Simulated scan of single mutants.
Amino acid sequence: MMNFDTALKSQRNTNAKLNSDNEGYNPDMKTPLGIEKHASIVYTITVFYQVQEEICASCFKCMVLSVREDGGMLHYDIMDGKTKRFTVVHNVNDHEAKCSCKMFEMVGPLKYVVNRWTKDASLKATFEIDGVIYDQNGPKDEKKMLLNKVWSDIHCCMDMAGSNMEQLTAFSQVINEQKQLLL
């Protein structure tokens, strides 16, 4: 049991470090598109780079062959490079989109984002703490999740300030002001 606890603690520390590194890092944007900026905020850095590749490919390699409307549904025929054809169906009324390539799950708007690839995925724990069982598919303990997010934000701010005394002092003042408000 001791090895399991040590391995779990090590995994959590590594995950916290990766999250902290990720929070303080702003990747370069390759396009002026809002979807790329949105992806940089939502996804982990590793997944963001994969999504960024897809965004760039769609901008520079894809071509719309035709668009047709059929009862509130827009059908787009897309050519990817010179070999692959895809069809995107956009339901204008429901604001839903589906593509034969199935990439909306990775690069689409927030409702198409698969949670496991996001920065917040680790906030949805699947273990027991203080008698509370956290299950990603079950009911969420919003308080615990918010506490995790606050701690993550605090660690992120401390990492970004680094050894810069001016920034650390300013951050400390903000924290102390909030503490006084709570008291």
Score class of each variant (00 low, 15 high):
152 S>H: 12
129 I>N: 01
5 D>T: 07
157 C>V: 09
157 C>D: 12
101 C>M: 02
79 M>E: 12
166 E>A: 14
131 G>D: 02
120 D>A: 14
182 L>M: 07
132 V>W: 04
78 I>F: 04
44 T>W: 00
151 W>N: 15
183 L>T: 05
79 M>H: 10
168 L>W: 00
45 I>H: 10
116 R>Q: 08
45 I>N: 14
160 M>G: 03
70 D>V: 08
97 A>W: 06
135 D>R: 05
55 I>E: 00
6 T>W: 03
117 W>P: 00
38 H>R: 15
4 F>C: 04
83 T>K: 15
124 K>T: 05
141 D>P: 01
4 F>G: 00
86 F>E: 14
15 N>G: 08
142 E>Y: 06
178 Q>K: 12
36 E>G: 05
14 T>C: 01
117 W>S: 13
16 A>F: 13
113 V>E: 00
182 L>S: 13
158 M>A: 09
18 L>T: 03
157 C>K: 14
151 W>D: 15
129 I>L: 08
96 E>A: 09
41 I>Y: 07
39 A>E: 10
2 M>D: 11
139 P>S: 02
74 L>G: 01
40 S>F: 02
74 L>D: 03
3 N>P: 05
74 L>T: 06
55 I>G: 01
66 S>Y: 02
76 Y>S: 04
127 F>R: 08
148 N>E: 10
107 V>G: 10
160 M>S: 13
103 M>W: 03
175 I>K: 11
56 C>A: 05
85 R>E: 12
166 E>W: 00
23 E>I: 01
181 L>R: 11
82 K>H: 09
87 T>V: 15
114 V>E: 14
154 I>A: 09
95 H>M: 13
98 K>G: 06
14 T>G: 03
32 P>V: 02
152 S>L: 08
84 K>V: 11
80 D>G: 01
70 D>T: 11
95 H>D: 15
22 N>L: 03
76 Y>F: 15
96 E>S: 07
108 G>F: 02
70 D>R: 09
64 V>S: 00
40 S>Q: 11
7 A>P: 01
140 K>E: 12
135 D>I: 08
172 S>I: 02
63 M>I: 10
100 S>H: 00
27 P>N: 01
78 I>W: 00
125 A>T: 09
154 I>Y: 01
22 N>F: 02
136 Q>M: 08
108 G>D: 03
100 S>C: 00
42 V>C: 01
39 A>H: 04
11 Q>C: 09
135 D>H: 07
5 D>R: 09
160 M>K: 15
88 V>E: 11
21 D>M: 14
87 T>M: 15
109 P>N: 10
134 Y>D: 07
